[in-house]
Amino acid sequence: MTAPGNEFLIVLLGLSVLLSSAYAFGRMHQWHRRGRERDDAYRTGYDIASRSILSMMAANQQAAQPAPADYRARRGGRHARLHAGSVDRQAA
């Protein structure tokens, strides 16, 4: 036989297990759903950013000016002196 107060404890224990399980399953469902939404948002944002960068690059390419005809003369450094020296030797 069981003591008269045990039924209440058994029902209380069963109810606490049920509520804890329901809470755990709800949290797992929420985590799974948010993960899917986060993946979708990432893919959408990645596509928008890719298109934006490509259109910005195309706009910058159109706005770029061509290099000047006397490009070698305007460059500084060793190569500019070499080219200038070869021009001087050819003129002499």
Score class of each variant (00 low, 15 high):
1 M>S: 06
2 T>N: 12
3 A>Q: 09
5 G>W: 01
5 G>H: 08
7 E>G: 10
7 E>F: 02
8 F>A: 04
10 I>A: 04
10 I>E: 05
11 V>I: 07
12 L>C: 09
12 L>M: 13
13 L>E: 07
13 L>D: 09
14 G>L: 15
14 G>Q: 13
14 G>E: 15
14 G>H: 07
15 L>E: 14
16 S>D: 09
16 S>E: 07
17 V>D: 06
17 V>C: 04
17 V>I: 12
18 L>Q: 06
18 L>R: 04
18 L>A: 10
19 L>I: 12
22 A>Q: 15
22 A>H: 06
23 Y>Q: 05
23 Y>P: 00
23 Y>C: 05
24 A>K: 13
25 F>D: 08
25 F>L: 12
26 G>N: 11
26 G>L: 08
27 R>V: 15
28 M>R: 12
29 H>I: 04
30 Q>Y: 00
31 W>T: 10
31 W>G: 01
32 H>S: 07
32 H>G: 07
32 H>P: 01
33 R>V: 08
34 R>W: 01
34 R>L: 13
35 G>R: 15
36 R>K: 15
36 R>I: 07
37 E>M: 04
38 R>T: 03
38 R>V: 02
40 D>P: 00
40 D>N: 08
40 D>I: 10
42 Y>K: 06
42 Y>H: 14
43 R>H: 09
43 R>L: 06
44 T>M: 10
44 T>R: 15
50 S>H: 04
51 R>L: 13
52 S>R: 14
54 L>Y: 00
55 S>H: 12
55 S>V: 06
59 A>S: 10
59 A>K: 14
61 Q>F: 01
61 Q>P: 00
63 A>P: 02
63 A>Q: 13
65 Q>K: 11
65 Q>T: 10
66 P>A: 12
67 A>G: 02
67 A>C: 01
68 P>K: 11
68 P>E: 09
70 D>K: 08
70 D>E: 06
70 D>M: 03
73 A>R: 15
76 G>W: 01
77 G>L: 13
77 G>H: 06
77 G>C: 07
78 R>I: 02
79 H>D: 05
79 H>W: 02
80 A>D: 00
80 A>P: 00
81 R>T: 05
84 A>F: 04
86 S>E: 15
88 D>Y: 08
89 R>K: 13
90 Q>C: 03
91 A>W: 03
91 A>P: 01
92 A>W: 03
92 A>Q: 06
92 A>R: 07
